[in-house]
Design a protein around this nucleic acid. Structure first.
Lengths: 189, 189, 189, 189
DNA sequence: CATGAATGAGAGTTCATTCAT
DNA sequence: AATGAATGAACTCTCATTCAT
């Protein structure tokens, strides 16, 4: 903490919050510096550019979510339970840190194209679980990328609506319905 | 040419294509003028600002999609068929005009918040169909906004992945699977 | 009036009113066309440029005032009476057409430099009257340009204050005081 | 140089000189930056807009002149002496810094309307002196605003003519005549 | 490591002017 | 003579980035 990593964390926090609230293009480096309580130039001691800050923030948070999901389902063997715990986790995390998910949702465009290989992503984890379940005969065959996308869509689109105020309750209230629907997508129960 | 509607259309076409390819913030008014083959100042005879161009374009295209869906399901009475024809229509339109959907998908953030009331939107149409089906006892009760969001997600998220190259086939190839999944979301067969 | 001079007059009226209210630089050709109820391009059938419109308007109105003053004092022989009638005339015209004087007052900067020779101007008329009075021994010697400027200042500066709201009564109320003061400037009674 | 006050001063100097020479509307921010030897963007670290630069410059210089006058007449008790020293001071300052007065004279239109209360202005000082003199019975009754305006006009209008080349001598040459005329306005000797 | 004044390329926008109708 | 859509040069202003302190 002597080495300035506290400063970096302040930058990340301020940037995340501002990006979620105003959008990336609409947030200036001055905004970020102001929010973090530091000088504008200081940002450039920690990131080569604003763009790198955005990418770094996105990638670390995106893969962090992937890893949380991965850990969560490690001990579950059935796809039904895996889907359920993933969705419950997502709902809880979403309610606990909306700026984070707002940021991920609205930054995915422009970032998804350049996610490097060999990173654990939420989609990757879902896709993996689906592939395993297919191998185990738990669910029907079919393009696992498509299935993963559809499952993700079931969970993410209501979250988008929640962010934009069309759905007003805590996201966890929808947990059971979301699980049910995701199962439906995969033809379960 | 006596009226400027041809010019306005050229602006719309160029803007749509550029917004889809590079993003809104990354597209300059100079880019648009160049793409449309007109002078930069001419944009401002048709739109008060770049922002108004974006909003106007989004709203007209967004509601146009809504109306196409509405027309398509008018003569269908069962929710299953309605879902099916909507998805088939979406798949076909998506393949026929990717820039349009790319634009809508990546511009929704920042625009959805300010969709005026009294406009026909894709979500509105889906929601309406779901409400009717619930009233008719065709599907289970439950928050129609949530159900509509989930159905939308099933169709839209794979489209996003398609736009970003994670799904490479023509979107119509997924048509049957998408219909199946959407039914599953609603608990239909 | 068949020949478009009515249109020219509409342009002049609208321009005068707008220039007085908003200033020359702040008034656009679009404003003028709108105010005159004509198309923007039409202005250019009557004036080569906005600048020429301003200059033409200024010069014709400025010299018109000069001529009105000249006519008014033609039959007066004493400087005291001449000063008095000029000021009374100015006060009346000012109250009757404030936009005109507002325009002249705020456009003089930038126009006075290029008043062509051989034109009758208010200052010229005052200067002439002073020179005559000096020749006739009615007032003391002294630079007639300076004397004319001072007399003009006595009348014009309160008018400026009136335009900007620091003096609120009708300008004619000040008539007697202004005459008295102008006489005082010239050392009369 | 650690604080930017030297830069601000360079901007003020360059702007004043250019505004006086070419007019405010005709002076671009590029001109100012060029004149000050700085980058165009630097102006905006010191002023929110060109308009604010103009207003700030006008107000500070205008009130500065007012304060110089106020200080000058503080120890004079008779209105005659006060008028005399004010005019002598004005003449000297005018000759020493023509751009400053040219700027004030041609910017007053558009700025005078928005002079905030509680600021010392040249007119205010003159008006105050007149009011006192009236109270002391030194000069005749009458609207002090009008009297102040007339006295100001006597001094300012020749200055305008001087700026536009109609009066060519140093302004101090007129000092005695101006004093005499100003006294005449007030009915003194 | 942190600062913040300065930079300068380039953005969005304005508007006097033109010209085909 | 009148129109008004189109022009394009030039404007004001923004902001990611640099660098002397």
């Amino acid at each position: 903490m002597r080495d300035g990593s506290a400063t970096r964390e302040k930058i990340n926090q301020a940037a995340l919050e501002l990006f979620a609230r105003k959008g990336v293009a609409e947030t200036t480096t001055r905004d970020i510096a102001g929010g973090a309580g530091i000088a504008e130039g200081t940002i450039y001691r920690h990131y080569k550019s604003k763009d790198e800050l955005v990418r770094s923030l996105f990638l670390s948070l995106y893969s962090e979510q992937g890893e949380l999901l991965a850990v969560q389902i490690r001990d579950e063997s059935g796809i039904k339970e895996q889907i359920a715990v993933m969705i419950q986790l997502f709902c809880r995390l979403f309610d606990e840190n909306r700026p984070l998910f707002t940021f991920l949702l609205l930054t995915q465009h422009g970032q998804l194209e350049r996610v490097p290989d060999g990173i654990v992503t939420p989609v990757g984890v879902i896709r993996e679980a689906i592939t395993c379940a297919q191998a185990a005969g738990q669910i029907r065959k079919g393009d696992p990328d498509l299935l993963a996308a559809m499952v993700l869509g079931v969970v993410v689109q209501p979250a988008v609506f929640s962010v934009y105020g069309r759905l007003k309750q805590p996201y966890q209230d929808f947990s059971a319905e979301l699980v049910q629907a995701a199962w439906g997508v995969l033809g379960l129960s």
